[in-house]
Computed example of a mutant assay.
Amino acid sequence: MIIEATGLRKDFTVRRKVGRFRREKHVVSAVDGVDLAIGRGEILGYIGPNGAGKSTTLKMLTGVLTPSAGRARVCGLEPVAQRVTLARRIGVVFGQRSQLWWDLPLAESFSLLRHIYKVPAADHAARLKRCTALLGLDEFAQTPVRQLSLGQRMRGELTAALLHGPEVLFLDEPTIGLDVLSKQAVREFLAEVHAAGEATIVLTTHDLADIEKLCRRLVVIDHGRVVHDGSLDELHARYGSRREIVADLDAAWPGLTLPGAQVTAVENDGRRVRLALDGATAGEVVAALAQAVPLRDLSVQEPEIEDVIARLYRRD
């Protein structure tokens, strides 16, 4: 395994107001006994609601935070004790933290990173050429980082994280705040990196589309504990979180029963219907719906990750 964690725990001490003048210390467990085993070449979705412990886990695995208990090894190294050595073997992208130089053109940031990581010029040039082609960096490579849009900067961050050829890539909310086209570019790039077997990828996100398009395995964490480790389909099957089809009709809803779907709402004087998928695929339900009633428009809505977690805990 390229990443192993056993009983990983991180406690923080916080002060809470008691009365008018007193404050008491309380220990809060941000991560509470996480076990992980990730094989080389995997792409893992690590998801959960805000405050669940996702970013804290990644910071312990990258050596930024020292665990309060438990142990972790990444690339065969102890993240904190061997942080400098580990830094040369991993790539990290935190959505709200930049590793680029704000006032320098993007291309110069890449050049500086080559010297920092002591990457051979030929290797650096080959990786940069490939990233430039996949992410379309040419049009803004000479633009100062501070003038880049969020989507452009994130493409630059991904490139910067890969230029030294890391074995593991940690991504914390890489698509947060991006527009549709930028998200698509990032997802396609990560899929290409994974298909090429260049790095093991650990991805945290609130966007289930990222997970569905990229990850075969996901780990769900809440209140610092792992509550699910498996595929997205297994999560939906186990906890009943279902996608919905929202269809706008050219005629009133005739009250049909469609195999593999349940009607959850009929709106707009019967001209809009919401169908929860129940065992069938979206394509099968849409095909049956189109044969039964004239359609004006439709969309498939993914459940929010917060809804998945809430349903999971209601079951447990």
Rank of each mutant, 00 (worst) to 15 (best):
A195H: 11
A191I: 01
T6V: 07
L235I: 07
A209E: 08
L203Y: 00
R238L: 03
L181W: 09
V202S: 01
D179M: 15
K183H: 13
I43V: 03
A292Q: 13
V80E: 05
V64C: 11
K118P: 10
G165N: 13
H223C: 12
I38V: 12
Q147P: 06
D172K: 02
R242Q: 13
A252T: 00
V193D: 11
E167S: 10
T6P: 02
A30N: 13
I309L: 06
P120D: 14
T56G: 00
A161W: 11
E157G: 09
A196D: 13
L112T: 15
V293N: 06
L232I: 07
L100G: 08
L178W: 00
Q99S: 06
S98G: 09
D11T: 13
L112N: 15
G165F: 14
L58G: 14
V202E: 01
L100E: 03
V246M: 14
L77S: 12
L190G: 01
G70K: 00
V168L: 09
R274K: 05
P166M: 14
R127D: 06
P166F: 10
E24A: 15
T57N: 14
R83Y: 10
M60F: 03
C131P: 10
R274P: 00
V119D: 03
Q99G: 01
L298F: 14
V286M: 06
L162G: 01
T159Y: 10
A276P: 02
R225D: 00
V263L: 02
A30W: 08
G7N: 00
H26A: 13
D11F: 07
R23C: 08
A247V: 10
L256P: 03
V293Q: 04
L277S: 09
P49Y: 04
R130F: 12
E24F: 15
H26S: 15
L106C: 03
L61R: 09
A251M: 04
A121K: 09
A287T: 03
V14C: 05
K54H: 12
H236Y: 15
L137M: 10
D278L: 11
T13K: 12
S68L: 02
H115D: 07
R16K: 07
E212Y: 00
R146W: 11
T132N: 07
I47N: 00
R296T: 05
F189P: 08
E306T: 08
E173T: 13
R216I: 02
D103S: 12
D278Q: 05
R97M: 08
E234I: 03
T13A: 14
D250Y: 02
G45T: 02
V92T: 01
L148E: 12
F21M: 14
S299R: 10
E157N: 00
I305C: 00
A69L: 09
G224F: 10
R225G: 02
V145E: 00
Q291C: 07
D210Y: 00
V34E: 05
D179N: 15
I38D: 05
D222Q: 13
C75R: 09
L208G: 08
H236D: 07
L58T: 15
L104E: 05
L113N: 04
T56I: 09
M60E: 01
R20K: 08
L298W: 15
Y46E: 05
D32M: 04
A126H: 04
T264M: 11
D278G: 02
